[in-house]
Structures are given as C-alpha cells and as structure tokens.
Design a binder for these strands. Structure first.
Length: 277
DNA sequence: AACGGAACCTGAAAGC
DNA sequence: TGCTTTCAGGTTCCGT
C-alpha cells in the first residue's frame, strides 16, 4: 500500500497524534524492523522524549525529538500506523507500540502494524544514509523538468524503472509510475534516452496528476480503505479508460506493469549506439 | 558502474 | 474442503 500518497497521509495522522506529545512508553521485540539497532534502543531513547516535528521525504517518515534525535520510519510493503486507546488489545501483526500523553488530550497508543516486516524503524542521532540518498520529493520540492530530463537521458533503463529510482525522484512507486505513464501516454518500456523534452513534460504532468488524485482519493475515503480507484494499475485485461482497448500486463524490473498498447506510445532510441569513454 | 534476478517476509486469493 | 501456487503497492544484496 505505501507509496508517496499513502505515506503523506500517514505523516499527517502521526502529526495530529504525536506533535507536542510526550512518549510514556515504547516497546517492540522485532529485531528485523529495528535493524541495525537492538530492540532495547526504543525504550532507552524514546522514553520521556517529546515530538517536535513529523516530516516525510519520499517514502520515509521522520519524527524529530526534543533531544535532537530522530525516529525514521519506512512502511515497506505492508506497514501502517494506527491510533488506539492505551488499553486496546495488541493488533494482529503489531510490531511496535508507542504510548503518548499531551496536556489537552487523553492518553493515546500508537501502533505500528506490518505483516510482512519489510518496514523499518530506526532511532538515531546521526545522519541517516537512506534519508540523505533520496532525490527531490514531488510534493515538497516539486518536479523540475531539466534535472528529470537530464537523468532520464543518461540511463539505459526503461522509463518506468528509472522513475522508481528513489535517488531520482523520492516516493514514486509501482502504482504512481504506472499511472503517471498512462496519464502521459508514454509506453513504460520506452528507454529513458529515447524521450524527448515534451515527453518528459508529459511524464511530469502525469506524475503530478497521479499523486494528486491518489491523495484526494485516500483523503476522501479515510478512515475506510478505498477499493482500487486506479485507472490502469491492476486492471490488465480490462478496457483502457481512454480508448477502450484491452490493457496489457508485463514485468519490468521485476515489477508488474499495466499499460495500454494503443494509446501509450513507445519511444525507441534513435540513430546509432552511443559510447562514452 | 550498471543491470537482472533472487532474497527478504507474510497473508490473501486463485487454482486444482 | 483443503492443499498448492501465485502474487503483492519496497528495498537490498549478489553475481555477471
């Protein structure tokens, strides 16, 4: 579930729940999610701390604590943050529990639930390489055409694989990339090198549309989980919403990819091969 | 250095 | 019904 729009919604909720609150309990026994630190780090470094800011960059969340340390949270494939009453029972697949108090509120308990355990929770006072390596965030920094065109021109990967590279643009995942290319009418198999500047413009517009729409859908449906409102993702075999031609499914970079072979045009590298010394 | 593919995990859904 | 296979929206590691 978690790509940029999902993580941004998680950020807003965590901000509502935690900003200005003091942590009175923090527990987890999950070595995998807390790696590379031992589970004991949670209680040791969170107890008594208050939360000064809740930030997001790409698919990473960052809680800033009053002692200068940060809590980094990545939702992996199946991670979610939930708010519960302090006496509520443990959730299925609950991996982390943080209880907080705030002057103007009853105490709350925030639970991190993650069946597959691909998520992370890292507490550190040092700089965090995974965060530092992230490229510009489409919501925070916007999408700059020049650098994007430059980056796409210098890779031999397909455009879809390139868009999911977190150092190029932070937060674009399989759904957003798939949807954005459909909006922009670009075949996901196109090579980055083969794209024209107008193509890049269309992709950028597609990314903004896909992200904005997904955010709006998530907001509208909360606290329910919306059924798939995607235009093409997960809809192979169904008619293209634009031209009614059946949608195709292929695998790119190991990820399932849906597109319309009729209205998404493929760009192929022109001319001879190009070499660099 | 860049790329494809497997690995890391669990659970839901589809297939038999 | 119940067992098996497939697939999942993410990242990382390993071999070529």
């Amino acid at each position: 579930m978690p790509e940029l729009p999902d993580v941004e919604l998680a950020r807003r909720r965590l901000q509502d729940w935690m900003l200005g609150a003091t942590i009175v309990s923090a527990k987890s026994a999950d070595r995998r999610i807390l790696r590379p630190h031992p589970p004991s780090i949670l209680k040791r470094s969170l107890l008594g701390r208050s939360v000064r800011a809740v930030e997001r960059r790409g698919k990473w969340l960052r809680l800033r604590l009053d002692d200068g340390r940060n809590v980094y949270s990545h939702l992996g494939m199946t991670g979610r943050w939930l708010r519960r009453e302090p006496d509520a029972p443990r959730e299925q697949a609950e991996r982390v529990r943080i209880d907080l108090v705030r002057d103007d509120w009853p105490p709350i308990s925030v639970r991190y639930v993650d069946p597959r355990r691909f998520g992370r929770l890292v507490v550190t006072g040092k700089s965090f390489p995974e965060w530092e390596a992230l490229g510009p965030d489409p919501l925070i920094d916007g999408i700059r055409l020049r650098p994007l065109a430059q980056a796409l021109a210098s890779t031999r990967r397909t455009v879809k694989e390139a868009l999911m590279d977190q150092s190029l643009l932070a937060g674009v995942g399989n759904i957003v990339a798939t949807e954005a290319l459909w909006y922009g009418r670009i075949d996901p198999r196109s090579t980055g090198q083969a794209l024209s500047y107008p193509d890049v413009k269309r992709i950028a517009r597609g990314l903004r549309t896909a992200i904005r729409k997904e955010l709006a859908d998530l907001e509208a449906s909360y606290p329910e989980e919306l059924p798939d409102a995607f235009r093409v993702y997960g809809r192979a075999g169904e008619p293209c919403p634009r031209c009614r031609s059946p949608l195709s499914r292929i695998v790119l970079g190991g990820r399932s990819t849906t597109y319309c072979g009729r209205c998404q045009e493929r760009r192929r590298a022109r001319g001879g091969r190009r070499r660099r010394a």
